[in-house]
């Protein structure tokens, strides 16, 4: 009767099997459940909510720039379009927003794309108030060493990016790679975007039939890449706005020409006077000289020469020439071109 049991009874084996079956069921259940992602994981792995979108939609604003980024030839959208107005721009481009705001920024949309080469492409499309403002933001941040691009007359490209303006829009396309395939795709995308952007309306700029000031700079010695439009505070003078500048390398030394268009000759004369006064405040003294353009004044400080005059509605001048000769030479060339424009 008191025998050592040799093996488990049938009931014991059945109970053991039942335990194992329950564990197996638990494993199957766990396997099934783990594939239903927790909301925490869904939230963490989905793209972050666009920060500015709720703000924009709250005031019901419709961003016209967003529509241009719906699709882009040869590129695949990699996220939603995010749009910003003057209130929210600094959330996106903190630090550089001032540059756009000073040039009558209207709105900006940005979207990420991926290119067939595998590169990531960010496209920023800014709308400014006028074509002149768009040109101002383009020219103010022209990268040194950039090459001109055929996308638009003022467009230029760097190793991995392309910048152009068309009408009142300014666009930046920058890729995270610099290989040839990426650059080709980038140029293709830029041409597609440029093709869809509206061109400037001929009389929209308020400049009437007057020629574009930037065509009036003399060609000799001009560094074409240096042509800029300062939207505000040109050459350090607060309130001196919409001034084109261009750098020259003359045989007699370096100098900068500037040209600004005003609505009336009186306004032009007032600006010229203000600038001359500003220079005088900063230690420049008037000098007499032969061969100055009509009505011009020459102001000099050690190593720096300035010439200012007006011609019709234009304020023109030479800024920070290294020598008196260079200043006079450039002034004469600029005045000659200007004479043809002002009839």
């Amino acid at each position: 009767m008191a025998l050592r049991r040799l093996g488990p009874s049938r009931a014991e084996s059945a109970a053991s099997s039942a335990v194992l079956v329950l564990l197996a069921a638990a494993i199957v259940w766990l396997g099934a459940v783990q594939s239903r992602l927790s909301p925490a994981v869904v939230v963490a792995t989905s793209p972050p909510p666009p920060a500015a979108a709720p703000v924009a939609s709250a005031d019901g604003r419709v961003f016209e720039t967003a529509a241009f980024l719906e699709s882009l030839a040869g590129a695949t959208p990699g996220g939603p379009v995010e749009s910003y107005d003057p209130e929210t721009l600094s959330d996106r481009i903190d630090g550089k927003a001032e540059l756009y705001l000073a040039a009558n920024f209207q709105e900006m949309s940005v979207r990420g794309f991926s290119l067939p080469s595998g590169a990531h492409l960010d496209v920023y499309l800014y709308a400014q108030a006028s074509p002149r403002d768009a040109y101002a933001v383009l020219s103010a941040q022209r990268r040194p060493g950039a090459t001109p691009s055929d996308v638009s007359p003022d467009a230029y490209a760097t190793q991995n990016a392309l910048y152009f303006n068309k009408g009142n829009h300014y666009a930046e396309l920058s890729a995270d790679r610099a290989d040839a395939a990426t650059l080709d795709a980038l140029a293709q995308a830029a041409r597609d975007l440029a093709g869809r952007l509206p061109a400037a309306e001929p009389a929209a700029d308020g400049a009437g039939a007057a020629p574009d000031p930037k065509t009036l700079f003399p060609a000799a010695g001009l560094d074409a890449a240096s042509l800029r439009l300062a939207a505000s505070d040109a050459m350090g003078l607060a309130g001196f706005s919409n001034v084109y500048t261009a750098d020259y390398a003359m045989p007699s030394g370096a100098a900068t020409a500037f040209l600004a268009q005003r609505d009336t000759p009186e306004a032009a004369a007032a600006d010229a006077k203000a600038f001359a006064g500003f220079l005088a405040e900063n230690g420049y003294a008037p000098q007499q000289a032969q061969g100055l353009p009509q009505g011009a004044v020459l102001l000099a400080a050690p190593g720096s020469f300035e010439i200012i005059w007006t011609s019709g509605g234009y304020v023109a001048g030479v800024h920070d020439a290294v020598s008196r000769e260079a200043a006079l030479e450039l002034a004469a060339a600029l005045a000659a071109g200007l004479k043809d424009a002002v009839k």
Partner: peptide, 16 residues
């Protein structure tokens, strides 16, 4: 650990 790899949170019922 928040993530969707099998060795991360996924849908594991970690409170079971």
């Amino acid at each position: 650990t928040v993530g969707d790899a099998f060795w991360q949170l996924r849908g594991w019922p970690i409170n079971w």
